[in-house]
Amino acid sequence: MPTPVYIAAGLKKSFSGNPFAQNYVLRGIDLTVQQGAVVGLLGQNGSGKSTLLKCSLGLLRPSAGQVTVLDEDGWDLSAEAKSRIGYVPQEVVSYPWMLARQVIEYTAAFYPRWNQPLVDELCRRWRLPLEERVAALSTGQLQTLGIVLALGHEPELLILDEPVASLDPVARRQFLRTLLEIVADRRRTVIFSTHITSDLERVATRVAMLRDGVIGLDGEMDELKDRVKRLHLAAAAPLPKDLAVPGALAVEIDGAEASITLANFDSSIVDQLRVAWNADVTVQDLNLEEMFIAVHEHCGGAAPSVANANNVKSAESDDSRNVPEIDCP
């Protein structure tokens, strides 16, 4: 039975000092990550990804709720817990006056377990100029240095805040390969934020989408792809504007045609729609990017009405698998 290495419970964060004008960046995050999981945190810019990760590591203090990391309070991590965590911030900051090699040696000196052969190998693979001053490194090289520093002590929990944002496609793929090697050891857990969905699709076993300070969509990657589908309807007659389908993430109607994104696809719904509207129905698989857009566009618009609900049978009724949480403000 895997144990949770990371638990966020009712986590809220506001940057306003005024208790009467709280502007929450995080509005109640509940997230439990089991050992061995690779969790991709998706969200638009400003959705609170970095804030969530910083709250998890004791860089920010939660306004409410709690984060438990490796069985310790995230705000007050012990030295021992910190030696088991690796973190790559969005913007890697280091000492401009040191050589890259000196920064590595300096950091290594703090960790009781430091895998220097691994670090040497990574530096070689990523062509990190070790005898160069940090000030003269390019953004990509600096990011690489940050990643090397976070991997050197072989952390059990690796937290990456948009680790590949400033890497070129080749370097990004190399990083992904390294990440895959790391997670081949099933005791390792990785939480990383990104908005490059194609990277997530390769490595992540689980996806959590952050929207407006809450987890909007959360589930195993494969499960999400299995169940979030888009139906394209081509009916004989114009469809009503307020056509509603239970569990729909997004409904777009254009005359006799419609596309409906379902959070919880079931083949029976296709038959029902086909019969009800005398329509051609095709099912489209959605990749992560399309899901991401669907989640955001649905929540941005008006809530779907419940009219015409009697035309279609409830989609969840005969589904025993657990339903992905859809939480829209």
Binding site: K54, L57, G58, L59, D76, S78, A79, E80, K82, S83, I85, Y87, P89, V92, V93, S94, Y95, T107, F110, Y111, P112
Partner: peptide, 16 residues
């Protein structure tokens, strides 16, 4: 402040 965010994750207590 900037380097501090990285340094505070070194295996040391906050007090140290």
């Amino acid at each position: 402040l900037k380097t501090m965010a990285t340094e505070r994750l070194l295996p040391l207590t906050r007090r140290t």
